[in-house]
Amino acid sequence: MRRLLKIYMEKPELAGIVFLLLLAAVFQFQTDGAFLNAYNMQGILGILPEMALVAIGVTLLMICGEFDLSVGSVFALTPMVMAVLIQDGWPFLPAIMAGMATALLIGFVNGFLTIRFQIPSFITTLGMLFVARSITVVISGGFPPVLPRDALPRGMFTSFVGPNDLFRMSFVWFVLVAVVVSLLLSRTNFGNWVRATGGFLPAAQAMGIPTARVKTACFMLCSLLAGFAGTIQVMRLGAPLPSIGEGLELQAVAAAVIGGTALTGGIGTILGGIIGATLIRVIDNGLVLSQVDANWFKLAIGSLTIFAVILNSWLRKKAKAMKVET
């Protein structure tokens, strides 16, 4: 029993799941059953993947000991590059590839500058937040490009699927990415290097791990996922607005932290980041349905973030102090 309790306490994402269920019950009660009905679920599950994909990348990068504030801007830039190229007459596939390549390039630049000049990634990516947003607005020319209705293969990304059209295709992509990145982190040698690099850099270096390459790979993956998420959102909305994704970087960090990822690196799980993102979406949606003034949303997310970090560090300390015989 004590052993189970210890395992539970060492996994903050489990506390997140419990909180999520609790919250769902409260909202369900508050809204007279409107929260869990099919239409509302369809709404939540339809837009969750966009934020969750960003959170997956940010969580991975934070476990590796780095930070990315530019994801919100990459979220807008990637689909903008794609849209501008489609408007210029490019077919969809090369255009989306060019968008993704832009995201990868930004991730690479973030990693390169951070590592080469040994500056905090907080600063590098803060700079990149402005740079990428600026480029987005400039290449859009101030007016979002108008895309022909059939230019985007919506069927592959945003059409409704599943029983009662409960999901969008984006949800399938999200699950796929979540499983792959989770396995990458927990089952592969690369995951082991990521955890070692973020957990204790000198040890990782002393053991001969190419920490610079590991970090750069995480920066690039994080950027790529943000770009992919933005592309999905643009396909859902049908038009690339230069302003999408503003503030998303901090929500993604909040999601990772709520899910138990430590700012110091080395600790956290992809599942935790996803649960954090789900919690944020559920709170957003639940508050609206409960007819609470929507401006309380940020207060709720803010308090939850602080509370989650305090709870997680307390649980971790308690679990560590708990001696279990095996």
Partner: peptide
């Protein structure tokens, strides 16, 4: 500097040589 405290013994044993 030779161990990562946040990782398990088994994972530490094989860092870089999994």
């Amino acid at each position: 500097n030779s161990m990562v405290p946040t990782m398990s013994i088994a994972r530490n044993m094989f860092i870089g040589r999994e």
